[in-house]
């Protein structure tokens, strides 16, 4: 089946089996391997991307369902001038990542969260990331990073 969508600003068309999951589509068909797979049950959030600007677990969406939609993956987060997105910077500055496997999904979930709630409390950040698991950081610095990004992005 032919699907066409806009991924990180560029229009792509591919022929896929209907059962192809969006995560496999971006990884295998588009070579955008920044989006990871961490579970079989939609529990971990490693695969989080934006569909029309909202966080979605790309392992729980078919590529055919995304036909005609706007997809952003971690590769599309850097700004046009090549600088990292403020959220990415905040993760580095606050040591919000260790092995980095959960990180792309965390960044995508966190940016979606701030879009809906630009000034979250600590607890709102924690609840907002409830669907993203990290085994390395104990979340302490991830939460700090998101709060810092909220402060920083609010200034802009």
């Amino acid at each position: 089946m032919e699907v066409t969508m806009t991924v990180n600003g560029a229009k792509v068309s591919k022929d896929v089996e209907p059962r192809t999951l969006l995560v496999h589509f971006v990884r295998d068909n588009l070579g955008l391997t920044g989006t990871n797979v961490g579970c079989d049950t939609s529990s971990c959030g490693a695969c989080t991307v934006h569909v029309n600007g909202e966080s979605v677990k790309s392992c729980t969406m078919l590529a055919v369902q995304a036909d005609g939609q706007e997809i952003t993956t971690i590769e599309g987060m850097a700004q046009a001038n090549g600088e990292m997105h403020p959220m990415q910077k905040a993760f580095q500055e606050n040591h919000g990542l260790q092995c980095g496997y959960c990180t792309p999904g965390m960044v995508m979930a966190a940016t979606s969260l701030l879009k809906e709630n630009p000034h979250p409390t600590e607890q709102e950040v924690r609840n907002g990331l409830e669907g993203n698991l990290c085994r390395c950081t104990g979340y302490h610095n991830i939460v700090k990073a998101v709060l810092a990004a909220a402060d920083g992005m609010a200034e802009v």
């Binding site: 990884r27 987060m77 993760f91 092995c99 980095g100 496997y101 990180t103 792309p104």
Partner: peptide
Amino acid sequence: TLRKEDPKLLSGEAKFTDDLV
């Protein structure tokens, strides 16, 4: 000191084994 390994991990550039083509 901020980590040298972060930019590649944060940008999706880092390759994990399953990422290899």
